[in-house]
Every structure is written in C-alpha cells, then in structure tokens.
Amino acid sequence: MSVIETRLAELGVTLPDAPAPAANYVPFVQTGNLVHVSGQISANADGMIKGKLGADMDIDAGAAAARACAVSLLAQLKAACGGDIDRLVRVVKLVGFVNSTADFGDQPKVINGASDFMVAALGDKGRHARSAVSAASLPFGVAVEIEGIFEIA
C-alpha cells in the first residue's frame, strides 16, 4: 500500500475507483507535471449527495459533501498517475462550487470540508490555493462540485 493510501486508511478512507465522466469530457488532463482534474460532484457509496445550502442543507452536511468531492479528486489523481498516487508532489488549487441560496454566504466553510481533508490526508502536500463560490444550481441537484489542479512527479 502506498504512503498516501496508508494515511487515508488511518483516516478511514479507501479510494474508490475513479468516477466515470457524466458527459462529453475527460476526467483529467495532464500537461507537463500538472494534472487538471475535472469537477467531481458530491457522491459517496450511497449515491449522490444532493441539497441546497441555506435551504435544506446545513454547513456541516455541506462540508461532508465537499469532503466526498475531495475523495473523488484523489481517486481521479490516482488514475492519472497510473495507480501510483505517491507521485503527488502537492495539491496546487481547488475550485469549489456550492449549490446555495442567494443569501447564503458561507461557501468557504463548506469547501473547508475538502481543504481540511486534503491537509489531514496529505500534510503540507495538501495545502493549496482555493476558490469557493456559490452556484444557483449544480448538475443532478448535488450540493457541491470541486475541481482540482495537482503537481505530480
């Protein structure tokens, strides 16, 4: 088991198979030593995590949805690295979209679910630049979607 996967196991996380694209795009693109991972929607073993922050979902549930996106991002990264996720040098940037009402302003607290997970799982490699923005709606009614840029060796 890789060093990163051992740390994930300590956190109770096993990376799933990388989710297949839901439309006409590729799950990731590598250019040089950067891997750009397409937006990963909030989903877990039970299915899609749906909801709208500020209406029918609270910040803690939104942060859990963001954490699920982070797990999918790492699954895609592992696929991009040919199965060797220890090629990760660092998380460069995350861009998080939060399905939220017009008056909801805590998008950063929701996306912290992904950011906190990356740091817990990866240490300093997990520290990253970030954007956290509101969206009037997201595909399939999911609560969160996050895309990422990763540097690999």
Rank of each mutant, 00 (worst) to 15 (best):
E145N: 14
C81M: 01
A70R: 02
N99M: 04
P16V: 01
L122Q: 09
A135Y: 11
G54A: 03
A9W: 15
D103V: 09
A79F: 11
A132C: 11
A132L: 06
A80N: 10
V71P: 03
E10T: 12
E151K: 03
D84V: 12
D46W: 08
D60T: 13
H128F: 06
V95I: 14
K50E: 12
L94P: 02
L94H: 05
A114M: 09
S72V: 07
M118A: 09
P108L: 09
A80C: 12
G51S: 04
T6D: 14
K50F: 08
N112V: 09
T101A: 09
N99Y: 09
A45L: 15
A143G: 04
K109L: 11
A43I: 04
F28M: 03
G141H: 00
R130E: 15
V142F: 06
A114Y: 02
A129G: 06
F97Q: 14
C69V: 03
V110A: 05
A68Q: 02
A66G: 00
D103I: 10
F117R: 04
K78G: 01
A135K: 09
A68P: 02
R130M: 15
H128R: 07
A18F: 05
A68D: 05
I111Y: 09
N24P: 08
A65R: 02
L8S: 00
G113K: 01
V110M: 06
D56S: 01
L53I: 00
A43C: 01
P27D: 12
I146F: 05
N24S: 10
S38R: 12
L88W: 08
V13N: 10
G113R: 04
Q40G: 14
N33S: 13
E145I: 08
G32W: 00
V26I: 14
V29E: 03
E151L: 05
K78L: 10
P16S: 05
G54T: 01
A66K: 02
Y25A: 03
D60M: 05
F150N: 00
V95W: 09
V92P: 10
A114D: 04
V13C: 01
A70S: 03
A22M: 14
G12C: 08
A102S: 15
I149Y: 13
K125H: 07
P27N: 11
F150P: 05
G148H: 07
Y25D: 10
A80P: 11
N33M: 10
A153S: 13
L73G: 15
I4K: 06
M118W: 02
R130N: 15
R87C: 14
D56V: 00
A135Q: 09
R127K: 12
G113V: 07
G83E: 10
L34V: 15
A75R: 03
K109P: 06
I59T: 08
V142A: 02
T31N: 14
D46H: 12
A129W: 13
A61C: 13
R127I: 14
